[in-house]
Structure formats: structure tokens, C-alpha cells
Design a protein around this nucleic acid. Structure first.
Length: 117
DNA sequence: GTCTTGACGTTTA
DNA sequence: CTAAACGCCAAGA
């Protein structure tokens, strides 16, 4: 179910969680992409903030969300720094030096994959 | 109430 | 090319 955050204020967190949950294994996306999809492209920080709250919610593959540079910026927020990289590796995502390899190829853009019309 | 900080991203210098 | 500033908005102090 595609979320339509028209109000963009109502349940921002919930929307972010929904999108993140839709990210298929082996794929990754960026905070900005999610923010853009939600209509808050300029507030990409809020996405990251929402992700921080996602810790309390199970089923949120936060490890599949990285910054625009493909860098594992949020690894420090996991139980262990290697946790995020480990999870990515398990899903077939290669990450070296805290940076996802072939990031562009496995990049999952909600604005495209979810095909908002 | 104000001020600082922050899982970001884009634009200038 | 790299470094710094700005915008954006929410939460904690």
C-alpha cells in the first residue's frame, strides 16, 4: 500500500517507516530519496530523525538506508558498528570502508520503483 | 520561551 | 578539486 503523505505533517515517521519496509532485500536507498518521495526533499534530515525513532520499531531495515553518498552514516546507531555492514553483506550488498559498493546499481528509488504518478 | 544538535543534501567560495 | 555555509524541521537541554 502506497502511502500518500499529502499532508506531509500527519505521520511523517509512519510514512518513512512504510517506505523503508518496502525496500527489498539487496537494495538500498537514501534519506533524500525517501524525503523526496514524501514531499519533504529539503527536509531529508527529518528522515534520518525518523529512522532514529525506528529503533523502537521492529521490521525496519534501517541498514538499507544510507546517505546520498552511499555511506553507512547510521552504522554508529546500531548495536555495533559492524552490525549495519554485516546486515548489508548478508543481503548481498558489498560495503567497503563504510561505503556501499555499486551503490548506484542497487539503489532503490521510491519515486521510481513505487512509480508515483 | 531560546539555543544547540542532528542517520542529509545542495549550493557557494 | 576540497571546504564551508545554508536550508530544513524536530527534539532535547
Amino acid at each position: 500500500m502506497i502511502l500518500t503523505l499529502n499532508e506531509r505533517n500527519k505521520d511523517f515517521f509512519e510514512s518513512v517507516f512504510a517506505v523503508v519496509r518496502l525496500i527489498p532485500a539487496g537494495r538500498v536507498t537514501s534519506y533524500g530519496a525517501i524525503a523526496k518521495y514524501l514531499g519533504t526533499a529539503k527536509s531529508s534530515r527529518m528522515v534520518g530523525w525518523a529512522m532514529n525513532a525506528s529503533h523502537q520499531i521492529p521490521g525496519i531495515p534501517a541498514h538499507r538506508v544510507v546517505n546520498r553518498n552511499g555511506m553507512l552514516t547510521g552504522k554508529m546507531h546500531f548495536s555495533n558498528e559492524k552490525e549495519m555492514e554485516n546486515l548489508l553483506t548478508t543481503e548481498g550488498i558489498e560495503a567497503v570502508n563504510d561505503v556501499i559498493v555499486q551503490f548506484k546499481l542497487i539503489f532503490w528509488d521510491p519515486t521510481i520503483e513505487l512509480a508515483m504518478d
